[in-house]
Structures are given as C-alpha cells and as structure tokens.
Amino acid sequence: MNISTEISDRKMKQRLLKDKIFTNAMIFLAFLSGVPLFLILYQLAIKGYRQLNISFFFEEAPDTMEAMVAVANNEIIPGGIANGIVGTLIIVGLASLIAIPVGIICGTYLAENAEGKFAGLVRFIVDMLQGVPSIVLGVIGYIWIVKPVTNGFSALAGSVALSIMMLPSIVRSTEETLKMIPGTLKEAALSLGVPYHKVILKVILPTGISGILTGVILGISRIAGETAPLMLTALGSTVVNTNITEPSSAVPLLVWEFYNDPNLVNMIWSASLFLLLLILGLNLSAKAIAKKWKVQY
C-alpha cells in the first residue's frame, strides 16, 4: 500500500515535470513567433521616427536633389508622403466602394443557397480568386481600365484591381457569418409577413454585422499594403492627385520609389512604419469590432 503510493508519487512528479517542460516550451515558441513583428517595428521605429513630423503627413514627396542636400548636411529630408496617403485613401476607398456591396451580396447569396449548383460554382471561383497572384490582378486592371477606359494609368484602374483582390475575404466572411445565424430568425421575420428582401436587409445582415465588418476590414488591410497591382495601374505620382482618371501615388508605391532612389532611402523607414501601423491599426479594429458588435443569438 505504502510502496505503491510512493511509486505513483514519483511518477506523478515526473509527469508534472514533463507537463511543465511542455508548457514552457509552448510559451517560448509562441513568444518566438511574435518576435519578428517586434523586431520589424523596432527597426522601423529606430530608423524612421526622425522623419515622422507634421510635414511628413502634409507635404508631397521630396525630389531627389532636395533630399541629397539634406542628407549631405545631415538634416532630415524635407517633405512627406501626403501624395501617397491621399492616393491610398482614394484607391482603397474606391476599391471598398466597389467590393463591399458586391461581396456582401455575393456572400449572402452563397449563404442563402448553400446547396445550389450555381452557388457552388461561384464559391469555387471566389476561392480561386483568392489564389490569383496580385501582379496578375494588376495586369487585369491594365487591360480592363488603363487601356480602354482611362486611356492611361489611373487611380481607378488600381481600385478595380484591388477590389477584385479584397472581394474573396468579404464574400467568405459574409457567407460564414450568415451561415451561423439560426434559420429560426428568418422564420420569425417571415411569420410576421415580412418580404424576403427586407428579412435579409433588416434582420439577417444586421445580425451578422460584426462578422461581415470584420471581413471587410481585414480585406481593406490586405489591399492597403499592396504594391504590385498598383505598379501596372495607378503607376505613381509626385503630387497629390484627387482625379481618379489620372495616375496616382500610394504609400506602398512610395516605399518602392524611395528604395529606387539612393537619395531618398531614408524615407523608406518612416513610410514603411506608417504603412505597418495603419495595417496593424486596421487589424486591431477588426478584432475590436468582432468582439464589441457581436450579436448574441
């Protein structure tokens, strides 16, 4: 009796030890996977913070001569990325304007016709779309808009390319969200004589609002940092441009331009830091909305 409990005590201790090692290993690995993000943020902050002043947000990108003089005098480079910020806002905003209604309607259709053949086809296509390389979407924007519509590089072409890119995330998050909503809710509304379109617009979609918004924001954060499709569509611009049929800058395009200009290399860090913070902010707000606006049913 005594002996056997002693043995099991020892075994117990061994087990507890193993458990402890395992748990700590998990914590360590989890920590490790968080390290790159902090290293990146640290790197960008150290190198970029000096450039982050008022003019960074409100002035256009400096030209290479000015920058060279400033660097030679060990001053901060004058000017900012206002052309990129405005361009990103316009291009991403317009892309959202196109993709959000289409995506939500499409996702709703898929959720409402889960079994249908056509729905199956649409779902398949949307999944494929998710895998299309972003540069190919740039080519599409070039062929569809740059050549025939705006007769030259334009913000609009960039928006179209990016809207295709954000579509799958909106469609799928809408579909998944709506599928989770119990059918009894729809029955409740129908049993009050509410026509189908109003049931969808006034009962089903509001009930799924948090999931849908989360998908939308993640979609936005996915395209906000895209560079490749914009190279073939929006092209870039050294000045603030609000005409969507004209070439436009964007923050990720500026990072690329800074990289290509030895005098402007110092601007990379601050522009990247801005872009990264913007996207992190979007992701955080997506999480907050998912939690705060969650409808309990």
């Binding site: 119990p182 009894t184 809710l185 029955e187 409740a188 509304a189 049993s191 009962v203 009930t207 409808v295």
Partner: peptide
C-alpha cells in the same frame, strides 16, 4: 397579420 406563429425555440430578433 391574421394568423400569427410561435416556434419551438424562442427566436427574438437579437439586434
């Protein structure tokens, strides 16, 4: 409006 219905599971509109 003339014939109302109540279901097995309570289903108030959650929003």
């Amino acid at each position: 409006r003339k014939i109302g219905m109540v279901f097995q599971r309570p289903n108030p509109f959650p929003t």
